[in-house]
């Protein structure tokens, strides 16, 4: 697992208080919302705030969110693309 992907998974677990869950249990390609992790709109806001705080990347609108929240894989790629070097 790449360092960034691991940090993304750790941020998700920490921010959403998914107690007892480990990064290994989150599948890279599984959807974050609905099926997969089963997150909801409140979790989405929490993740947007977490991503900004931890990685300095803003998710400005729902279109970016839809793209970024497709999976951990997609979110990691979104963060890698948008964060300052």
């Amino acid at each position: 697992m790449s360092d960034l992907k691991l940090r993304v998974k750790e941020m998700i677990i920490d921010r959403l208080k998914l107690e007892g869950m480990t990064p290994d249990q989150i599948e890279d390609g599984a959807p974050l919302f609905g099926e997969g992790l089963g997150l909801d709109s409140i979790d989405a806001l929490e993740l947007v705030l977490g991503i900004e705080q931890v990685f300095g990347v803003k998710i400005e609108d729902e279109a970016s969110g839809t793209k970024a929240f497709r999976s951990v894989e997609a979110l990691t790629a979104f963060i890698a693309e948008h964060r300052k070097a």
């Binding site: 709109s41 989405a44 806001l45 947007v48």
Partner: peptide, 10 residues
């Protein structure tokens, strides 16, 4: 406010 997304605000 701490932030907003998708019609929700914290």
């Amino acid at each position: 406010p701490e932030g907003a997304f998708g019609g929700l605000m914290k």
